[in-house]
């Protein structure tokens, strides 16, 4: 009996998953609402996304895009609306794309969102969602809010933020000031560090880069989780050799040629580094806050 229940449950779950795959999300979007109706449907997977957004597709592909669905809404004399729902391989990748896009953290839609008059973006579960209007009118602003609510409710599952993000100290963290990623291209998102994959980032590593301090004097904190301590130690050696070979246990904070401070360390399978430290005191304080989290 228990086995039969389990099988039925698994079949039901499979059926639900298949249904979601087929129908979600385009099937859940209203065909018509307010003065709008769907005029085009969007459905792209993998590299087909190039057909839709050319090279910009690489942003999503670098986070493991599964497919993008959505639609365009039009109406007489009103701004076009576009819904794009990017389905990623994991919730943490959806979260990563979200961190590439948002400037501040809100929680109006999904598990994190940012709203503008013409644009709403949010993440929930494996999905990164954008809803935007061609231009801003009171009607288009209300319409994109409505669609964001519909999509938010239609996505059944939430997902966890990558654990590495929890390692960031809250004190001094700039609002919306961190980025989660795997691909080395994003290592330079806030601050040029290297023109190559200096610290062996790949799909198996979770990296977070964060801004601390005032806008005119940022400190940048990098934390990377590797699959094991050996890989973390190897990346640490490469960073040390290429960035601050003079760094030692006796001299863990290095003042660079531009008078900023740098440090790097490992703890277990994690690598940490602070770039552009304004002073030794600030760098040391951020290091202590971080190491206590790690």
């Amino acid at each position: 009996m228990r086995i039969r229940c389990l099988l039925l449950s698994m079949m039901s779950a499979f059926h639900l998953l298949a249904s979601v795959q087929e129908d979600f999300p385009a099937g859940r979007l209203p065909e018509r609402f307010m003065s709008y109706r769907i005029t085009d449907r969007l459905n792209y997977s993998g590299e087909d996304l190039y057909d839709y957004i050319n090279g910009g597709a690489e942003l999503y592909l670098s986070y493991g895009l599964t497919r993008m669905t959505g639609c365009k809404y039009n109406g007489d004399g009103i701004p076009q609306l576009t819904v794009e729902i990017y389905e990623m391989t994991t919730p943490k990748n959806a979260f990563g794309v979200y961190t590439q896009s948002r400037d501040r953290e809100e929680r109006v839609y999904g598990q994190g969102s940012q709203s503008f008059h013409d644009f709403i973006l949010f993440w929930k579960g494996c999905y990164f969602v954008t809803v935007y209007a061609q231009s801003v009118t009171p009607e288009s602003e209300a319409a994109i809010k409505h669609l964001a609510e519909v999509i938010d409710k239609a996505i059944p599952a939430t997902g966890q933020r990558p654990p590495v993000v929890a390692l960031l100290p809250e004190e001094g963290l700039a609002e919306g000031g961190f980025l989660y990623f795997h691909h080395y291209i994003w290592l330079n998102a806030y601050f040029f560090i290297a023109n190559h994959n200096l610290i062996d980032l790949d799909d198996q590593t979770d990296a977070v880069l964060a801004k601390y301090g005032d806008a005119n004097a940022r400190n940048y904190l990098l934390i990377v989780e590797y699959p094991d301590g050996e890989k973390a130690a190897s990346a640490y050696q490469k960073l040390k050799e290429n960035y601050a070979p003079e760094l030692t246990a006796a001299q863990p904070f290095i003042r660079l040629e531009d008078k900023t401070w740098f440090t790097t360390w490992t703890k277990g399978n994690r690598l940490g580094a602070i770039f552009n430290g304004n002073s030794r005191e600030e760098t040391e304080k951020l290091y202590i806050l971080t190491i206590n989290h790690m």
């Binding site: 601050f191 040029f192 560090i193 290297a194 023109n195 190559h196 200096l198 290429n242 960035y243 601050a244 660079l256 040629e257 531009d258 008078k259 900023t260 740098f262 770039f275």
Partner: peptide
């Protein structure tokens, strides 16, 4: 050669740091 920010700093020690 692969280049890091540190390499740039060593070569351009007099460059304004803010010129991103």
């Amino acid at each position: 050669k692969f280049i890091t920010r540190r390499d740039l700093l060593k070569r351009t020690a007099l460059m304004a740091v803010g010129s991103t």
